[in-house]
Design a protein around this nucleic acid. Structure first.
Length: 458
RNA sequence: GGCGACAUCGCCAAGUGGUAAGGCAAAGGUCUGCAAAAUCUUUAUCCCCGGUUCGAAUCCGGGUGUCGCCUCCA
């Protein structure tokens, strides 16, 4: 198993701290708004990472934190004119709903920043005692110049950072790259009591204390979007190593951006889509297919045409399974012979190469094609097994059975019978009318060698 | 100014030294009353220039283009 590690800029053999037990920490949302379709990428990708490690027989613990106190929540609270805590609650709920709709399994732990204030204060005090932190007027900053290899994750050098390139410099800091550990509360803002007065923690601290609490010292994989490399993850490393001297995580994985017509999605460019809105138009597995059809580290361009294509592609895989008359309940007797096993091996080779999901998907289609040629049911079993590793076919139980009322089923059979009679009498228009009308109702008729089959359109 | 990523068929996309996976779309054939599904067939020499090599989409150098990061950001 090889994983590309941002820390070393190369693919490395993956060796977990504890054999067969893998710890993953992924930076979760700041709950100040509905999350956008770009945020769905790390959610879906690390969902697959977890599923794949489990498929290989590991016990996986995935932590995804929820940042529920931050400047952005305060801004949103002013805009919506409701308290910060209500903003947090509202958008945390929305996050959980929408990520669930995307088919992303809940993390094993979903710690909230506000539950860790005490821990964060402890860490900041520790940093202060070791003179990595200094306080000015109730604000506390981390001093990056005291950190001996600051910049090692992002490859940036302190003297090359162009201070104020995008955000105006805070002149009370000793060095422009110093970052906030504790922020003094303005009147009316949410606040907690600390040795430096009332205020709130800075963003970069929560992940350090949460991961430490839930995993102990060094854990296996820290993940997130590529934009978090600097400064967020850089600052996490600086704090963790300054306080204990231990590595925070062994492997750092970062997914590329989702772009809109080649450009980064942002509110100011007015090319911003929430996952919630996209889910109204496309099903979750089409969205998943879209993301997984490209390697996670590459930028991916989003548009509706691609999603439509993805939807068609995943539907075709479902077609293969549905047409096979596969019986989910009785598949335990199916065994893989060598010719089938080789597809499984190829899939694992692809996934072991830094999660090459694009190639893994190609193998699903090879299996589908092979089945349609030789009709070996064990290929369908493998297709489902591997598809589920990528998070597909969650809907299979429902789509394989036309789950409707017996009375409706009888009605459909009756109509098919009438249509058969019309066909025998060569009254094509009447026969086609029945088929078209049923289609309007979402019932698809197919004439096969075994007679007319029907299914509910999903 | 510093750092980095990317450029493969109409569209999406894998491939990192041995002669171009896969998906979507399109065209034609088989099957069908028609349709759907399935199936067969057809469609690229890899941004440009130069170099290394028996051999390069893959390595090196130089261009061109697109995008990103340099303390909001997945």
């Amino acid at each position: 198993m090889k994983i590309y590690n941002t820390l070393t800029n190369k693919k490395e053999e993956f060796i977990p701290v504890i054999k067969d037990e893998i710890s993953i920490y992924v930076c979760g949302p700041t709950v100040y708004n509905f999350f956008h379709i770009g945020n769905a990428r790390p959610l879906i990708f690390f969902d697959v990472v977890k599923k794949y490690f489990e498929y290989l027989g590991n016990k996986v613990t995935l932590v995804r934190n929820i940042t529920d106190i931050d400047d952005k929540l305060i801004d949103q609270s002013l805009e919506e004119k409701i308290p910060v805590a209500d903003i947090a609650e509202k958008y945390t709920k929305a996050f959980l709903e929408d990520s669930g709709s995307l088919g992303v399994s809940p993390a094993d732990h979903q710690p909230k920043a506000t539950e860790y204030i005490g821990e964060m204060i402890k860490l900041i005090k520790e940093l202060e005692e070791r003179s990595y932190a200094y306080e000015i007027n109730g604000d506390v900053y981390f001093s990056v110049t005291n950190s001996k290899d600051y910049g090692k994750l992002s490859g940036k050098k302190l003297d090359e950072l162009q201070a104020g390139a995008r955000v105006k410099t805070n002149k009370q800091k000793k060095h422009p790259a110093d970052f906030t550990l504790w922020k003094k509360a303005k009147p009316g803002e949410p606040k907690w009591t600390s040795p430096w007065g009332e205020g709130r923690p800075g963003w970069h601290t929560e992940c350090v204390v949460m991961s430490r609490k839930l995993f102990g010292k060094t854990f296996d994989i820290h993940g997130g979007g590529i934009d978090l490399i600097f400064p967020h993850h850089e600052n996490e490393i600086a704090q963790a190593e300054a306080s204990t001297g231990n590595k925070l995580a062994n492997y750092w994985m970062h997914n590329g951006y989702l772009n809109i017509e080649g450009e980064k999605m942002s509110k100011s460019l007015d090319n911003f889509f929430t996952a919630r809105d996209i889910l109204k138009k496309f099903n979750a597995e089409a969205i998943r297919f879209f993301f997984l059809s490209k390697h996670y580290r590459s930028p991916i361009d989003f548009n509706e045409k691609i999603l439509e294509e993805s939807q068609q592609a995943i539907r075709n895989l479902y077609n293969t399974i549905e047409n096979s008359g596969y019986d989910l309940k009785n598949d335990i007797y199916l065994k893989y012979d060598d010719s089938v096993q080789k597809y499984k091996d190829k899939f694992i080779v692809a996934m072991n190469d830094d999660f090459n999901t694009a190639k893994a998907i190609a193998i699903l289609f090879e299996i589908s094609k092979a089945y349609n040629k030789i009709n070996d049911k064990s290929l369908i079993k493998l297709l489902i097994e591997l598809g589920k590793v990528l998070g597909f076919f969650s809907d299979l139980e429902r789509t394989l059975s036309n789950n409707i009322e017996p009375i409706s089923e009888k009605l459909i059979s009756l109509l098919i019978e009438y249509r058969d009679n019309f066909k025998l009498e060569k009254k094509w228009e009447l026969a086609d009318a029945i088929r078209d009308d049923l289609k309007e109702l979402g019932i698809i008729l197919k004439d096969t060698l075994n007679g007319t089959e029907w299914k509910i359109k999903k």
